[in-house]
Design a protein around this nucleic acid. Structure first.
Lengths: 181, 181
DNA sequence: GATGTTATATAACAATGCTAGACTATCTGT
DNA sequence: ACAGATAGTCTAGCATTGTTATATAACATC
């Protein structure tokens, strides 16, 4: 009555996510095709669809691991603005395609402000929020926006690469200074 | 000896760009297929390839018009930080798919720092730069990054929509205050 | 008009995401 | 042990995409 045992779906999901992430980081997201992914894992395409409903769902899952990882990267350093901001930018620079999946690629991930926002997303924002304990959420959102802008514009080569440190310094100063008026 | 006259290529390029931009703004970039575009213009696909070498080249051309337009939008308001910043965010919010083509989609456009950076791109940055005449380029780059981060995170619904004005105010204050130390 | 050149259209190619149906491996019940 | 049922996997295919080779049709010159 009981059929062939189900393979460890969670394990397989992890393997697929890992392979997709590596492949994207190596050759870019357009190279992450279901066929190539399946070939790399030694299975056929339909197997991937037992783990993920669509390619989009897979990309979303990869993005989610990215949010977990960047949250961990933030929590791993001091809760000071400078340390957290640097950690954020370092992460984005070290994993450009992953960061792309998190923010630039079309995404089915739920958003901030809703209760169904995935936990990793909330943890990542909390990692930034925690660097500005005396500020309000608005300031933390501006900080996040500045970091995100710096990360993406720098990644696309639209800012002078040699002035990255100066930009970080300036942004950090601006965000930590109290209003004077 | 003389062949059939070449159609006005520049005119056709403009028409294609316009159609692609409208279609993208209406139904998103994935809906902008060469077939649908051709059908909308009453021609067949190969004709599009006489105007643009590839779909990517077409998207790049659309993005370039976006940079021209945002530059014009910036130049149309006072050179004050607040006016320019608001104009930038308004533009991004009013043309989300166009802004997507300019910054989020894969792009073949050349980058800042090189002499071959397209003029519209330089003009757009100059529009931001002009709002901070007393500051250095580094501050202008940080301003641009903050604006870009605000625009994209807001567009993807990752910031509290009701606090957009507060974020703009805060960002503006931070960027205009002099260092105090 | 006839001719030759070139813009356009037809039709096809290769690759993609995704899926229906055939096959096969495994566990259960006797 | 062995047969049967169940569910995972594979083969093969569909529809759609960007892009292009070939054939057709339109136009300016003579």
């Amino acid at each position: 009555m009981s059929p062939r045992p189900a393979p460890d779906l969670d394990l397989r999901r992890d393997q697929v996510i890992h392979a997709a992430r590596d492949l994207a980081e190596a050759d870019g997201w357009p190279a992450v095709t279901m066929r190539r992914l399946a070939g790399e894992l030694g299975v056929t395409q339909p197997v991937l669809y037992s783990a993920f409903a669509s390619r989009q769902a897979l990309i979303d899952a990869v993005a989610l691991t990215g949010f977990s990882d960047i949250a961990a990267a933030l929590e791993a350093v001091d809760a000071s603005p400078m340390a957290r901001m640097r950690a954020y930018l370092d992460f984005a620079a070290a994993h450009p395609r992953l960061y792309e999946a998190m923010f630039s690629l079309p995404s089915g991930l739920a958003f901030s402000g809703y209760n169904d926002t995935p936990g990793p997303l909330r943890r990542a924002f909390a990692g930034i929020r925690g660097a500005f304990p005396d500020a309000d959420d608005t300031r933390a959102e501006v900080a996040w926006s500045a970091l995100h802008g710096l990360a993406t514009l720098q990644a696309s080569g639209r800012l002078r690469a040699s002035h990255a440190e100066a930009r970080l310094d300036l942004a950090c100063h601006m965000l930590t200074q109290q209003e004077t008026r």
